[in-house]
Design a protein around this nucleic acid. Sequence first.
DNA 1: TTGTATGCGTTATCAT
DNA 2: ATGATAACGCATACAA
Lengths: 337, 337
Amino acid sequence: MPLNIYDISRRAGVSIATVSRVLNNSPHVSENTRKKVMAVIEGCGYVPNAFARGLGLNSMQTIGLLCPNASDPYLAQALANLERSFRAHGYDCLLSCTDKELSARMQGVELLRTRHVDGMVLMGSSFIEAEDRNNDFIREAAKAVPILLLNGSFPCDNVYGVLCDDQRAACEATQLLLDSGRRRILYLYHSQNYSGRKKLAGYCDALASRGVELDESLMSYFGEDKTSVYQVRDHLLALERQGLEFDAVFTSEDILAVGAVKYAIAAGKKVPDDLSIIGYNNSSYCLCCNPELTSVDNKLSAICDHIVATMMGVLEGREMPQKTVFTGEIIRRGSTL
Amino acid sequence: MPLNIYDISRRAGVSIATVSRVLNNSPHVSENTRKKVMAVIEGCGYVPNAFARGLGLNSMQTIGLLCPNASDPYLAQALANLERSFRAHGYDCLLSCTDKELSARMQGVELLRTRHVDGMVLMGSSFIEAEDRNNDFIREAAKAVPILLLNGSFPCDNVYGVLCDDQRAACEATQLLLDSGRRRILYLYHSQNYSGRKKLAGYCDALASRGVELDESLMSYFGEDKTSVYQVRDHLLALERQGLEFDAVFTSEDILAVGAVKYAIAAGKKVPDDLSIIGYNNSSYCLCCNPELTSVDNKLSAICDHIVATMMGVLEGREMPQKTVFTGEIIRRGSTL
DNA sequence: TTGTATGCGTTATCAT
DNA sequence: ATGATAACGCATACAA
């Protein structure tokens, strides 16, 4: 039904090659015929067929976004940033909300590959696994298209990482707690992934830097799915009943910190007087609590901008840094002294 | 680099037509050759080229998702639900995070059309405007592909609305407040769109049903962008300073209700004793507040499921209902008596 | 500068 | 049941 390049060429009295040249603003076309062709094109609202174009160029200017858990406000924000920026560069985004399980992520990557996306963004540090053979599917995919890691790093050709120095930020956050006199700092995390391990290391660094002994019982792992604030609250209440003492909580995600606030309310503790709390991500959750959450801002929007810039650079054949690190910033609010 | 259908046909000793038939499991192929061809296909991991397929079929099995503000947890959740479900049906999702402005939405729809998506989902009620001529771009797009409205309704061929009865739900929420003795109920909203108007009507219905006089000064409009909890808090503080009295707040979005909680804290009022609060969407924000927010659950996941089912039905040529209405449910929590 | 002709990898329409 | 071949709509190498 819609017209094709032949229709335009006929109406403009030129060949389809000329129309194509005008469309791709080739320099090898006289100003006169360009005007003439453009007039016809705009006159009938002609738009080149994207499928045919894709077939010829083997590209539809599309970036695949792999997002485990788009309902997480942090990743949702990243999604919005990335999509907006890619679109501004003329690229569309194909979304794949994979589950966190390895098989689902592999499937997501594979599906995007069959769609011949020009590049992929793996969102969230959960993509890189500790078991190195589990990362083979990333190496494989990277042979075909550039892969950008949001909050991850991976030494592999055609894979580019853009991230925040979580270890340092986590260290500084923990030091903030230590320097305000806290000694029993609970570390709550729910993921054993790349950045999860970095944050844990930062926590340990801080303790070492202040000569505080590491207490394993203060490091509390939360399964991937147990992110409900209620579960965190109940978990902390259980720890309290078991006699575990703590005067601060540092979490790998804001939502876990929200749970800590819930716990404080349930346990009749004042925040921050009885319990200091620091979250991570500086998401919109921080403003919902009372008191509001001190949190680590890991520069999401800068990271997203840089991801898009890097992707564009790679696609244009320019040399790009394989790893870009931003520095986190602690946003102090009411949940700390 | 990857093999094509000719490679397969050669290796299997058949014609490309037969390979194509096997691929699209046509009944007109003997079990014997099917086995033979499948063996070759799986042996070398052949996958048909999506672009060529798209060109031939004029479809790449893609649904366009238009999402104003993906950073809103409610829409982000919808995004995740829709994508998962469409994918389960073999459709990929092209994302377009349009701005709220009309021109941006029009542009988003247009862009998706040039990509020849098989259908579009317009997320959020902000897509349907009161000015009817501003909806022409939807009518235009609907001529080409089916359009599903998430939380919207629009009497137009090939446009299908799936929504919650916001008017009724808002009425019931307001009645809940009235029946607990509140009389000065502030209604906070930040959008004049379809569902925004419905909620307002429900609010008015409730007042009428209980014989309470409508006070225009209690209906407080918030510009689209003024969704920060701080701004809501300050706005309410300002209203208080102006001498406006109110003992309850009902909002069109949870985030606005969070702002109301902030106000109560700032003003030294107890929730729900001095001030009852009800939000809308039953989003994750509800659990972050203290007390937790009573909110209207507008059945997002049911709506998403139904959107996908309807889209699939339309694409398969079945007759589908143009409008499907779910009933909201009030989830009572600590912010109301 | 412009036009001709071919390839891109499918699907679908004819024959056989 | 299977095979040859023509679309599908564009980009481009090559010719003019």
